[in-house]
Design a binder for these strands. Structure first.
Lengths: 255, 255
DNA sequence: GCAAAAGTGTTGGCAATACACCCATGC
DNA sequence: GCATGGGTGTATTGCCAACACTTTTGC
């Protein structure tokens, strides 16, 4: 975290808009599992989503990308707002004095955290291997969690995560997904595992192949993945022109 | 508007969260046209969406329904957030002194309107005939506009309207729509005109009939609309149980 | 009777599903 | 060679779109 960001937490009201926060649901994909990036707040046992605040001259989108850059090291990730969480009691947990003691040592403005926040939910799709999970000044850990192993999170973050996943599943119906979650080259079975992980259900190998190639967003490379057991699968990459065109114009049909 | 709401505009910082506003895109349907409710701010020539602020103990959803109640007289309308507009310059127009002179006469806190607002966009579907458009303290007119006749609106409200319409069209793909926009009983052609108005394109009468009845959300009544020229069409109403079930579980296929 | 609009039925094509066969690799 | 997994092809089904005929009403 930059020096200016450090100082911004001493006097946050000078740098950020009051009452507005954002939470990022960062999805990654590794070993056939959908992962989500979580941070552990100092002095609390619970984990939560990486979050932040909106600078007085930032858009919410820019603020989210800044937070993401700080937590993952990544620029230019796929990032999209999906819902606003505005229950007046959603921050009650944080207001307990005990919860804030641990972070008060670092001269951070505790009063800032006691105000009511309306939080804008963003979700991000990132390439797992490229991420360097990094805690911020108010958290003492930051790491990937298997989606299936996420238990009770702080505040309403379980709700936010659930809503993000729902949105992602809907997204799958009219937008291509994968460029942001997979390495530059990948095999058809890997792409299928990604879709299965997001949807939470098995898909037919042959029908998946037909449907996904039908979108015309894939380029088949003249290579195969070697060294694996069994038949070597073909390698693919995304045709970025057509991929972005499909992002804009939408796809047909659902899963 | 209630007396307490009046006074809340004298000292809004005591009643509302700073920096957060909301704008409502209220859709109605009348004479085969999709309509949107607009208000004209005092001292300005431009029209804009009905908006408001979030009370210090309200959810954003509750605040939107309160605003809607004030502008339309309606309770219990279909209301949904769809996007957050956070460009730091989106409020520049309002900060001009001239723009605010006209409303300063009513002892309203001008400083409040000069701050930067992040606005939560809501869209509402209401029954046209039930609405009584009502201006608020800072506007001197409030009325329905034909969607096709809406020209330049204040601030970024054209963008908000466009985004609302996009969302509504997507919504049509997986949720039933109509209960909130049509009278209790209606004919199949009327329902079709509504879909056509939302989608901005013509649909085949017979395929529409099959598809919409296939959802199982309609009840055919033992009546017809009389007095009209030509063959009397059957009257329908929504089967509310199944309608709400479909709202939750979603529909199949797109338009 | 005629024009205009509404109700209903039929057909063809395309897309999703289910399923079968062959191929390559590690052991 | 055999088990495992990947690549490709085919038949069936069901949905969507295009289209025709009949019925009812006002004039």
């Amino acid at each position: 975290m930059s020096a200016s960001m450090e100082s911004s937490m001493f006097t946050p009201h000078k740098y950020f808009l009051a009452h507005i926060s954002l939470d990022c649901v960062v999805f990654g994909f590794h070993e056939n599992q959908l992962k989500v990036l979580l941070a552990k707040l100092k002095g609390r046992d619970e984990w939560g989503l990486p979050g932040g605040f909106v600078g007085i001259q930032e858009t919410a989108e820019y603020a989210a990308s800044r937070v993401l850059k700080e937590r993952t090291g990544l620029d230019q990730v796929f990032l999209q707002q999906f819902y606003v969480f505005s229950d007046p009691d959603r921050g009650e947990q944080l207001k307990e004095v005990e919860s804030l003691k641990a972070i008060s040592g670092s001269a951070i403005d505790i009063e800032w955290f006691k105000q009511r926040f309306i939080s804008i939910g963003f979700y991000a799709l990132v390439e797992f291997s490229q991420v360097e999970p990094t805690p911020d000044v108010i958290s003492d850990a930051c790491q990937w969690w298997d989606l299936a192993e996420v238990s009770k999170l702080m505040l309403d973050h379980n709700l936010i995560l659930q809503k993000a996943l729902e949105t992602l599943r809907l997204q799958l119906n009219y937008q291509p997904i994968g460029y942001n979650l997979l390495p530059a080259t990948f095999t058809m079975p890997e792409l299928q595992r990604l879709y299965e992980a997001i949807l939470g259900k098995q898909l037919d190998r042959r029908n998946f192949h037909r449907k996904i190639t039908g979108y015309g967003i894939l380029k088949k490379l003249n290579e195969r993945r070697t060294g694996v057991a069994h038949k070597a699968p073909d390698l693919y990459s995304f045709d970025l022109d057509k991929y972005h065109q499909a992002l804009k114009e939408g796809l047909q049909g659902g899963w």
